[in-house]
Design a protein around this nucleic acid. Structure first.
Lengths: 333, 333
DNA sequence: GAAATTTTTGCAACCGGTTGCAAACGGGTG
DNA sequence: CACCCGTTTGCAACCGGTTGCAAAAATTTC
């Protein structure tokens, strides 16, 4: 079917090695030879078989892009950034959907079978064992949007979710509220756990402010809406830190549909600052997570690891910032 | 690094062929042999190299998943369905982001280099030349969400966008409006062109109803909002068919922010019925596109083509249906 | 229990490339 | 022109598997 090296060699009247060399840069070929080979290759429409060469070189330029987050629109932005960034560096993303996959075994095996050069785990909800499983299989791993444990086992790029929780708490405190609350995503997600910890630790410094918390069962609109509707049946807090923008939008819809004003009766601050948060119809006050920078940095780290697989693991933590919009009353003073 | 067939063979004290055979189903191996080999393989942690075997079998189980639509949240649903569907059949999606790519050459070459078994082009905006370019390269192609031309060149799975335009027109007519309009996405997208054609052809049967049209420059919130704000400066139509849900949500936000009521002063009907359309905060009347069925069918078609590459091209067209929600006044009568 | 038949196994060539090594080449010196 | 040295080229082995073929083993038949 496809044109092979051998055919090109025959047509150009040279050895197979010569053809191979003209297509690997850094190899020694004379100008004359190169011209002959390129002509023959062009005539035949030859392009080298990347998989065959990977057999000897040990590199496939395939990168496993593993995620379990196919429902939160922010991940479309993430996939866009990852695919383009990888492509620009000549790497090919092999997408793995881990939704409903409770253990990493299968994916590890599959990615090993395809000899990926590295794996990017892009998820804030997957337990750290997943990333570790890939590392244990001897594959370079970057965990984007992951948790940076003290005893770092794999490279992590993301934000400090504990600090995120604190930051949200400080924002709510700065509004002068007397009752604030944490409305997290599923409490199995590491990001939720950390934000909860941060939120609570900051609030511990303000014992006079009543602080409550609860968890929605997913990072989704309906989970947020449902949980907020439930909360509104009793005495709700004056403002909520929701663990995610989509969740927040659901919560806001619950507040408004209950005949309450969103910033005035019940405030909401989200997390992520996805594109949709900016839409005038949502106008969500939220904490900005620099996803572009996180993705870019993850890719750079991945590229570096391809040359230096045993690189000492590092955590790259990016700063967060509050984006003030219309779902939280202004700071006092 | 990785364990090879040869090592397993040595440890089990058998030939390499024997090992190969126990890992290819349908091959002849005795139960005793199988046990020996599997034991050795397990001890060594062996798993066969899919790329090496592809060299002789000519199959990689790699499927190029090509798209240029990384900004419309509905495509996250599409990617979710595709990746899971392909995985379930033992196929691996190699994701290609065609954003900003004006010609197919590079991607065709790249996918050929990786010897993909097939290509799924998932886009309603890419010109048909892209799909054709892959077919010309001798790779099985399915164009999902594509246009089904009369002279079909590649397999297409999707909806009839001309009919979609007609259906929207009929809905607006049924409301008794005297001025309706088409607000399309970019007029370079084939889906927009077809919906425009259908809309106009249906309205031609109602000469007493004023019909106008315009195009937003993307399938995006801001494009929709911007265009609608512009339209509202003059005499707007009583109801608009917007070429996409995200566009619609932008248009609705423009209407409401201008102090007008959305169903009563200016109505909107969208297209796609993405998850977000259902959210109470949007409550968008729209035309449902059965993406789950389209994706499933695309995958089935792809699988069929792997066995029969020269299959005669077919178009699989799925029916649309109107989902009535809150952005269009009720039908009269 | 021998012959005929079927199943299992190993050999060796092959898939499409890469690469270490040594031979061939080219050009500069003396 | 012989000699030397740096480049360029081809040979052949190898990467990790698969597979047609024939020999070996197991099973069936009489």
């Amino acid at each position: 079917m496809a044109v092979t090296l051998k055919e090109v060699a025959e047509r150009a009247g040279v050895s197979r090695s010569a053809v191979s060399r003209t297509f690997t840069d850094g190899a020694s070929v004379s100008a004359k030879m190169r011209r002959k080979v390129e002509k023959a290759a062009r005539d035949l429409g030859y392009s080298p078989n990347a998989l065959a060469s990977s057999l000897t070189t040990g590199r496939t330029k395939l990168i496993g892009l593993v995620s379990d987050n196919f429902h939160n629109p922010i991940f479309l932005e993430v996939f866009d950034l990852f695919t383009r960034g990888l492509q620009d560096r000549g790497l090919r993303p092999l997408l793995v959907n881990l939704t409903e996959e409770k253990n990493p075994e299968n994916s590890v095996r599959m990615l090993k079978q395809y000899s990926v050069d590295g794996v990017v785990v892009a998820s804030s909800t997957l337990p750290t064992e997943f990333a570790r499983a890939f590392r244990d299989a001897g594959v370079p791993v970057v965990h984007s949007f992951g948790r940076s444990a003290a005893a770092l086992q794999v490279h992590v790029v993301g934000v400090d979710n504990v600090e995120c929780g604190r930051m949200a708490a400080r924002e709510l405190v700065a509004r002068g509220h007397t009752h604030v609350a944490f409305l997290g995503g599923p409490d199995t997600a590491t990001s939720t756990q950390d934000r909860y910890t941060g939120f609570m630790s900051e609030m511990a410094a303000h014992p006079k402010i009543k602080t409550t918390y609860s968890f929605a069962d997913a990072y989704s609109f309906y989970a947020g809406r449902r949980e907020m509707l439930r909360l509104l049946k009793n005495t709700p807090a004056q403002a909520y830190f929701c663990g995610d923008d989509v969740l927040s939008i659901g919560a806001v819809s619950a507040i408004r549909d209950s005949g309450l004003s969103c910033p005035n009766d019940v405030g909401v601050i989200g997390m992520n600052d996805m594109e949709m948060a900016r839409w005038e119809s949502n106008d969500l006050t939220t904490i900005h997570q620099p996803i572009r920078e996180i993705v870019t940095s993850s890719i750079e780290l991945m590229v570096a690891m391809l040359d230096e697989p045993d690189r000492y693991p590092e955590a790259r933590i990016f700063p967060l910032s509050v984006v003030e919009r219309g779902t939280l009353i202004p700071r006092i003073k």
